[in-house]
Write a protein that binds this DNA or RNA. Sequence first.
DNA 1: GTGGTCTAGACCACC
DNA 2: GTGGTCTAGACCACG
Lengths: 125, 125, 125, 125
Amino acid sequence: MIILDYKDRRPIYEQIVERFKGLILLGVLKTDEQLPSVRSLAMELSINPNTIQRAYTELERLGIIYGIKGKGNFVAESNNLVEVRHMELKSCIEESIKKSKELGLSEEEFIMQIKAYYREEASDD
Amino acid sequence: MIILDYKDRRPIYEQIVERFKGLILLGVLKTDEQLPSVRSLAMELSINPNTIQRAYTELERLGIIYGIKGKGNFVAESNNLVEVRHMELKSCIEESIKKSKELGLSEEEFIMQIKAYYREEASDD
Amino acid sequence: MIILDYKDRRPIYEQIVERFKGLILLGVLKTDEQLPSVRSLAMELSINPNTIQRAYTELERLGIIYGIKGKGNFVAESNNLVEVRHMELKSCIEESIKKSKELGLSEEEFIMQIKAYYREEASDD
Amino acid sequence: MIILDYKDRRPIYEQIVERFKGLILLGVLKTDEQLPSVRSLAMELSINPNTIQRAYTELERLGIIYGIKGKGNFVAESNNLVEVRHMELKSCIEESIKKSKELGLSEEEFIMQIKAYYREEASDD
DNA sequence: GTGGTCTAGACCACC
DNA sequence: GTGGTCTAGACCACG
């Protein structure tokens, strides 16, 4: 369910947060569904429970999951997540636009390029 | 010429590297033009000369500038900066596409959104 | 494991980089093996941790090792070190040839000399 | 007569020293022949006279040239230079041998490679 | 005055 | 405990 990349420059806990965000958005994990316990997931990934705890704390801070003492962690109503993701998408697009402008690309050329990458990904599937 | 954002998560030296990349790409700094000296820029930004030094070392490693001991640092000629930037743009766009897919956006919807952000930026100018 | 030569004109961090290159090439340090921590090696050599850090950063940039925050630095797998080393050897030989020509040595005389140095080193073992 | 490479990492004065060593060894400059004056060479190369002076001082220290106050600098008996060059050649070869050993090359393979580079240079002429 | 290197010591993020 | 970044201040090589 979760795959870690130790050579990735991002910290482990962030990779986990990111992975859960994806799973919830894609509907693999649904509202009020229980997440793996901190200890079991730590065992499964052979990492320190503190790292899992930190990821869950972060997800809770974002309002994406909620924890009940003595029971576990559960997926929250997904409204927050969609909003968060939209903000991320926006800044991601804005950075792309900035870079394309530096390279002297017009809006049309930029969109052409995006369409090209779309087709490229489609052929990978 | 250089503006630092202390709230930014990225290290200062990386912000400086990024800023100079942009200035050179935009043609503000031209081939063989001299960059500010390590010390003077450090004074101007009120940061430690070592931090500037590190940024310059990184830019030299990338082949974007060259330094001459006792003289200063200068913009290198026809570097591979454009190519590097295109790769950066590609991965930036791919991340945007990935996020848009997670949000269930179709290609058309995604491109609509990009056009919207383009107009938004235009109105900021 | 590491020996520093303070009389050497090359900076300390470069000597360390060079030493690790050799150790990895010779198979003393194997893929995924952990390098000494920045602090411990700094203590052992009685130099500043920053100097070790710089050497490790350089090795990581070359793709020879990889670092994980909070865990340590490790030897990367099947890196391009051999190729890099071959290029270094080539330029080193070319410089030797150039110098031998300036001294008026023929190819045969040059090779004779190399064989002599080989025997000399053999007798040192 | 002298060509400077500002992008070369070696300091200017060292490039000049190296160039004169070569010219003398090749017989272009003969024993007791006068070198260009500090000021005229500095003018010709558009660099600081101090830099020329430093190069000449270094050459004098090596016993390769000698200076007479009020008259100029002259090429010394070339014995010293040949010896110096032989030492340089030796350390250059030794470094090559060290690197070839790290790469696991036998003496025969190493010499084969040198012959190959010799032929390569011959074809460049 | 220029860049290059190093030390000492600190703080942060991460595990 | 680990590595990553930054500051302050120093010394050297170069022009």
